[in-house]
Design a protein around this nucleic acid. Structure first.
Length: 585
RNA sequence: GCGCCAUUAGCUCAGCUGGAUAGAGCAACCGCCUUCUAAGCGGUAGGUCGAAGGUUCGAAUCCUUCAUGGCGUGCCA
């Protein structure tokens, strides 16, 4: 795995350690253990390509001032055979290392040579990660939060794979429990409305399904003529299912028992919803490795086993007819219920069984869940449950994402999950290009609120960061194409650079593998969009100040090589985001 | 009440395992297309890093307290 930045950092450390060895050997500094120091890339390249704070952290131990210590190390440092041309003492006592031309040339040649493999690392070699994301309820369409979760989870998965982890993407289908009960109840109510006299009259007046559902739906899903009680789903999709079932099968369910009706309607609509979820996510360029059904955990007895295990471990007690988990034994605020007094387990029991399946049955090293901030209380409870099951709870990692605020015309778009009027993933994608949606949802750290500007996402201009990045790619392609028409093609030979804009672009290219490692460690796919933007920016600046067409032969090919390298890296990053890299715009 | 997250330029946000003059985009203002894609580039202006203490050679970054906002804290999921 090629990682020029990491190698250079290691070299800096080695050079310093050797210098310190010589200094203690000659008695110039006392032989004391020194604190660890850091090698970083300075923000300002006039401070060198790599910088070490060894003198600053060691000054106290050595009873000297940082600049004097730095000076001694700089003088004792042996740079022959390293990537570095020179080392300087600067500021309060930093050691600034400057890489030579060979380093820059190597970066470019390697990026061109490695192609799609450039940027890959082996950070996670041998580790298997299961990334679970979206897992929207199959009782209705996906909302805007699912859209953010989808983009984050999918790009996080790509990122981890790039860092060498073996990654599986998984969707957990909540096809059992209360939500599904409520789904059946809602369907049944709407079905009876559709069968009824009023429903038939509306059907006669509204031939197409859209106007029909709208008519039944009323103002906010609860029209006086077609009233719905509290605690049911009011989405128009429920009416649509009921109507479709009626069209296919007539009113034959009107006479059967409520229970039977709910069951039949659920068995009809739930698979359709699940298929719809899969289709919608595919359109969003998300393909799961596995769709895991909650119902399978009930059928296999895994849910019952969880309760038995927790009971056997002595972590439960009965009170008020319910079974409680002694969460306080594991640092929880309060105990909570596992099995309700009506005999049904709460939502967390199948979830425990599911995590047990991930970590023990299937043996993944880590289970990563992408969850909305409104579920963060759940995370602590799940950790407690895992501990109670004897599983190391650090094997569960959670990426919490804050809410999305949609903005249009400078004002917040009001969301209402309950009324079914929330903006769905599908309607979002009708309005916003796919590339923009995927890019925008990864624009910010997941743990900050995301302001999604619908106007900006649609705008085809430099204001829109997606276009800025894609434009850089298209520009590179055009340059390379133009030059090849003139017979100038980079064939992999020696290259050399002199201009600041060239160096800046090479440095940015060199950063990719480290960026991947850092972002993977932090589970932070937003680093990808940021990096893509910075890389595009470095290219635009290079393009502006360094002509390729008018350059003399050796310089021309070196710059062409740099274009190739930049294009490769841009493509690689966009591939991780699953955003198109257009050749023309 | 307790817990989690946030608070940095007019706006949206980076930077947070302590380091050099606190960065970027947008908005504002001034420039650059007979020259490889101006969907671009350069420049100007804009900051008591929510507040107050503390830790230290050094704090946007770590600790404490407080303020404001969001979300949790169900025999809902």
């Amino acid at each position: 795995m090629y990682n020029a930045v990491n190698e250079a950092k290691n070299q800096v450390s080695e050079v310093i350690m050797e210098a310190l060895g010589r200094l203690t050997g000659s008695g110039k500094i006392p032989a004391e253990p020194l604190p660890p120091f850091q090698v970083t890339i300075p923000a300002d390249s006039s401070h060198g390509d790599f910088s070490a704070n060894v003198a600053l952290v060691s000054a106290k131990t050595l009873k000297s001032n940082p600049r004097a210590v730095a000076q001694m190390i700089a003088e004792a440092a042996e740079l022959a055979g390293t990537a570095f041309d020179k080392v300087e003492v600067a500021g309060p006592g930093f050691l600034n290392f400057f890489v030579g031309n060979v380093w820059f040339a190597d970066v470019v040649r390697n990026a061109v040579k490695l192609g799609r493999d450039y940027g890959k690392t082996d950070l996670g070699k041998g580790k298997r990660m299961l990334v679970e994301f979206v897992s929207a309820n199959p009782t209705g369409p996906m909302h805007i939060g699912n859209a953010r979760g989808g983009a984050i989870g999918d790009c996080l998965s790509s990122l981890l794979a790039e860092a060498g982890y073996e990654v599986s993407r998984e969707f957990y289908i909540n096809d059992a429990g209360n939500q599904v009960e409520k789904f059946g109840k809602s369907l049944s109510l709407r079905y009876m409305q559709v069968c009824g006299e009023a429903g038939q009259r509306v059907a006669a007046e509204n031939k197409d399904i859209d106007s029909f559902t709208k008519a039944i739906y009323g103002e906010d899903g609860n029209s006086p003529e077609f009233p719905m009680p509290e605690d049911v789903y009011l989405g128009q999709d429920i009416i649509e299912h009921a109507k479709n079932y009626f069209d296919l099968n007539g009113d034959k369910l009107a006479a059967v028992s409520e229970e039977e009706r709910r069951k039949a309607l659920t068995e009809y609509a739930l698979p359709l919803n699940i298929e719809r979820l899969e289709q919608d996510l595919l359109k969003y360029r998300i393909k799961y490795d596995n769709w895991f059904k909650e119902s399978s955990l009930h059928q296999s007895g895994a849910v019952a086993e969880v309760i038995e295990k927790l009971k056997a471990g002595g972590h439960t007690y009965e009170q008020d007819g319910a079974l409680w988990l002694r969460a306080t034994d594991f640092g929880g605020d309060k105990d909570f219920v596992l099995v309700r007094s009506n005999g049904f387990p709460t939502y967390i029991v199948p979830d425990i069984a599911y995590h047990y399946n991930k970590l023990i049955t299937r043996g993944y090293d880590k289970a990563i869940n992408v969850l909305g901030a409104d579920h963060h209380g759940y995370v602590q409870r799940m950790r407690i449950c895992l501990s109670a099951m004897g599983i190391d709870d650090s094997r569960l990692d959670v990426v919490i994402m804050q809410m999305v605020m949609l903005v249009r015309g400078g004002e917040a778009v009001k969301l209402s999950k309950r009324s079914g009027k929330a903006i769905t993933l599908t309607t979002l994608l009708d309005e916003v290009p796919l590339d923009a949606a995927r890019f925008f949802f990864n624009l910010r750290n997941s743990d900050t609120h995301l302001e999604f500007d619908l106007d900006l996402a649609v705008e085809e201009s430099s204001k829109n960061p997606v276009y800025y990045v894609q434009y850089a790619h298209a520009r590179i392609c055009r340059v390379i194409e133009k030059m090849s028409e003139d017979g100038a093609v980079y064939g992999g030979g020696e290259v050399s650079y002199t201009e600041p804009a060239e160096f800046a672009l090479v440095r940015k290219i060199a950063e990719m593998p480290e960026m991947i490692n850092d972002a993977a460690k932090e589970y932070n796919p937003s680093a990808l969009t940021r990096y893509a933007f910075e890389l595009a920016q470095s290219y635009h600046k290079f393009y502006d100040s360094c002509s390729i067409k008018d350059a003399e032969q050796p310089v021309k090919l070196s710059r062409l090589a740099l274009c190739e390298a930049a294009r490769t890296v841009l493509r690689n990053v966009l591939a991780l985001l699953k955003v198109d890299a257009p050749e023309k715009m």
